[in-house]
Design a protein around this nucleic acid. Structure first.
Length: 563
RNA sequence: UGGGCUGUAGUAUAAUGGUAGUACAGCGGAUUCUGGUUCCGUAUGUGGGGGUUCGACUCCUCCCAGCCCAACCA
């Protein structure tokens, strides 16, 4: 009972505010949040943090969360992104029900509100050029100056603004600005732009409008119109909050509370649309869904599960300090989930042929193997065993270090679910590399148990050579060589930190036959190696797997320490 | 003397005037037919100085460090 009620999102400064508001009945007990993506790109795990907060907080406090496309800039935005964004949010496990909105649905109301502000003397049409506006704005250290058009009469402003809307002027001829304070310390308060002229086709409103509202004016209205109670956004909008509040106060309409939190950063990757776009455009990765990218489509293709991602998101918490989360926590979270749900299978990535000399030829035994030791209900399967098998190259060493306890000349190990085998002989190539191992097996150890209670230090996975299914495996490593890809010498940029060995493709891997027919997206644990997911590049003839994440590997650590 | 914000173990977060806790990472060990999982143990922290208080991560003050703001982007 207690676990059912346990909130998924741990207490943080935002839940404190929401709870306080609920206690004070500030919004009549309502919680209404929104996730407001701009349809101009792909969602990444940083967005997932926001989505998880927006939807999660609503869920947790019996509220709702709207999905709203913030489509106020027709030049950058595009319907094609809308579908992908919705797909990603649904995949993550969130539902906006019938509350799918668009900022463009509110264009008329925004226009009417602008007229109201003009009439109040709080907005004016400015006819300065782009360069002049910039110059008049001043700098951080020096105050701005009033535009010569700042004191136009209400009538003139009304007339000009209406004509802007009617398309009488070319792009850039005029803008509508709020009349606030050109000397304000907060740069954003120096008469922010409300509307600009853009003779551009909008993906939803077509050519109906040629003036489009700017973020500072539009966003607060969108929230207000929808009756949003808590408007969560990232830290860089903190400086915008006074304007957000100013417009709503001047208009005297529903006043949502904007709350800012720190966006997610992850080690060894980048998290901005702009930088991700460069990686894609410069062909450093193969597309927006490249499994090395932190995009939701990339993570999905790589084999991450929504549950794993949400669990990660709930572990990292929410705060206002800029921070960078160790990607190891993401990996832990996905392993945690995959461990519970994936069927185990034996697969050899780098095959080494093993001949069991005293095993009869033309005999095949079907060994019973457990599908998931974490979940008995997943049952068992039969895996064929025969005289010639493959084991992992890494599991044999002719001259091993002390802590190596896998196969080595004269040593006995267990073949998982099969038999104890002992290495009798090694055949090597000209370069001295082992190419074929000859073993003897103990028929009494069938199934992998020794009746005399004899112990072996290692259990190896294997695949019967005659029955093996070939496949391609793609292993992924960090896309960047540095924890912080931005850490560069003067004159260089993050692309100089790209790890060009971030993808390894292995052909002719050997899998147990039961895996044939696996479908795109299906996930498995290859025992002793890691978690793998069937890639869409798979064909009827050849399976292609992505390595989602390796298993924890304490042998690697021991090896490192021995160096 | 622009404006705003933030500093808690290696990392991310909790504690809102009353024993500084959790997770990941690290280290050590137990169990194990996956060097996986699980379990046990362990080191490491309030940016710095002053002040208020019986008592300060928490309140005040000064300092230091970092981030955001000068798009007709969001």
């Amino acid at each position: 009972m207690e676990t059912d009620l346990k909130p998924e999102i741990a207490g943080n400064f935002i839940t404190h505010i929401v709870e306080e508001d609920l206690r004070n009945n500030k919004w009549n007990g309502k919680v209404l949040t929104r996730f407001p993506p701009e349809p101009n790109g792909h969602l990444h795990i940083g967005h997932a943090k926001a989505i998880n907060l927006d939807f999660g907080i609503a869920q947790q406090y019996n509220g709702k969360c709207n999905l709203r496309f913030d489509d106020t800039n027709p030049i950058k935005e595009n319907e094609s992104f809308v579908t992908g964004i919705q797909e990603d949010i649904r995949w993550l496990g969130f539902d906006w029900e019938d509350r799918l909105y668009h900022a463009s649905d509110y264009f008329q109301r925004m226009y009417d509100y602008a007229i109201e502000l003009i009439k109040k003397g709080k907005a004016y049409v400015d006819s300065l050029s782009l360069e002049e506006i910039r110059e008049y704005r001043g700098t951080i250290k020096t105050p701005g100056r009033n535009s010569p058009y700042r004191d136009r009469s209400v009538e003139e402003n009304l007339d000009l603004f209406q004509r802007m809307k009617q398309g009488e002027f070319p792009d850039g001829a005029h803008v509508l600005r709020a009349k606030i304070d050109m000397a304000a310390g907060d740069m954003l308060f120096r008469d922010p732009l409300m509307y600009r002229i853009r003779h551009a086709h909008h993906h939803r409103t077509g050519d109906k409008w040629c003036i489009y509202p700017m973020y500072d004016y539009a966003h607060c209205l969108e929230d207000s119109i929808e009756g949003i109670t808590h408007s969560l956004c990232s830290l860089e909008f903190e400086a915008h909050r006074p304007i957000y509040d100013w417009f709503l106060a001047e208009l005297g309409i529903h006043h949502s509370q904007q709350i800012e939190f720190a966006r997610l950063n992850l080690t060894y990757t980048v998290m901005s649309k702009r930088k991700l776009a460069r990686l894609v455009e410069e062909n450093i990765v193969k597309g927006w869904d490249d499994p090395r990218l932190p995009t939701l489509s990339g993570l999905r293709r790589r084999g991450y599960t929504p549950e794993g991602i949400r669990s990660f998101l709930n572990k990292i918490g929410v705060a206002k300090a800029d921070s960078t989360v160790d990607v190891a926590l993401l990996e832990f979270s996905i392993r945690e989930h995959l461990n519970k749900i994936t069927p185990r299978v034996m697969g050899v990535l780098h095959p080494l042929k093993v001949v069991i000399d005293n095993y009869p030829e033309d005999t095949v035994e079907y060994m019973e193997a457990v599908n998931n030791p974490e979940d008995e209900t997943m049952g068992t399967r039969k895996v064929p065993f025969s005289k010639i098998i493959y084991i992992e190259k890494e599991d044999f060493m002719e001259d091993p270090p002390k802590k190596f306890y896998r196969l080595t000349p004269g040593r006995e190990v267990r073949l998982r679910y099969a038999y104890f085998v002992k290495c009798e002989n090694v055949i090597k190539n000209e370069k001295g590399e082992p190419i074929e191992i000859h073993c003897s097996y103990d028929p009494a150890t069938t199934g992998g148990n020794a009746p005399d209670g004899r112990k072996v230090k290692a259990t190896l996975h294997w695949v019967s050579a005659d029955h093996a299914v070939n496949c391609e495996i793609r292993q992924y490593h960090n896309l960047f060589l540095k924890e912080n890809p931005e850490e560069v010498e003067a004159g260089k940029d993050f692309l100089d930190n790209v790890n060009f060995d971030s993808l390894s493709i292995i052909e002719n891997c050997k899998l147990e036959p039961g895996i044939s027919g696996a479908k795109t997206g299906e996930k498995f644990q290859f025992e002793r190696i890691g978690y793998f997911c069937v890639d869409p590049d798979s064909t009827d003839d050849k399976l292609v797997f992505n390595q989602t994440v390796t298993l924890r590997d304490s042998w690697q650590k021991i090896k490192q320490k021995m160096k």
